[in-house]
């Protein structure tokens, strides 16, 4: 194999490249030595681009975290809501059941718009679930009960 690489024709390739290099001799765009030395001096030490990127990434992450914490709905303190609901419920309704008391308290409370929007969403979703669920359970329950009745009838005599 080494005989192949001793091919003297490599001189042809080298001559081509040499001619091309001569043509491209004074290539524009080569930075000056001063420029490079200045950049090497400015870019060294504490202000390397890697560290700059790391710090800016960290700052961005911290900013995102603060934004998320500030805008989270969980920040509404549950103890404050409970206190309002309990107070209203004890004053206006009887103690028939927990659910009834809570709904009455919500409708008559004076929560601000943020609390009201949070509380108003919950009953709506419960209603929609209630509308969808009953037909399915009714159908399936009916067929099951018929089968059971047939079985009971055959065993009776």
């Amino acid at each position: 194999m080494s005989a192949v690489f001793h091919d003297p024709d490599e001189a042809v390739e080298r001559a081509l490249f040499e001619r091309r290099a001569r043509v491209q001799g004074g290539a524009p765009g080569v930075p000056s030595l001063d420029e490079v030395l200045r950049a090497a001096r400015d870019d060294s030490g504490e202000t390397s681009s890697g560290r700059r990127r790391a710090w800016s990434g960290l700052a961005l992450a911290a900013a995102c975290l603060v934004t998320v914490i500030k805008t989270r709905p969980h920040d509404v303190s549950p103890s404050g809501i409970t206190a309002d609901v309990d107070g209203a419920a004890s004053g206006t309704t009887d103690r028939g059941g927990g659910m009834c008391e809570e709904q009455a308290a919500v409708s008559s409370s004076t929560l601000d718009s943020t609390y009201a929007s949070i509380v108003a969403v919950a009953p709506a979703t419960q209603d929609s679930r209630a509308c969808v669920a009953p037909p399915a359970t009714f159908e399936s329950f009916g067929t099951l009960s018929c089968d059971r009745d047939e079985a009971n009838r055959t065993e009776m005599p």
Binding site: V30, P31, E35
Partner: peptide
């Protein structure tokens, strides 16, 4: 050596402007 490195980078990157940045 700088013009040679610039030519090498231009041949690798295919872009003279990019090669200048890469040389620096």
């Amino acid at each position: 050596i700088a013009p040679r490195v610039h030519r090498f980078l231009r041949d690798l990157l295919g872009d003279a402007t990019l090669a200048s940045d890469a040389t620096q």
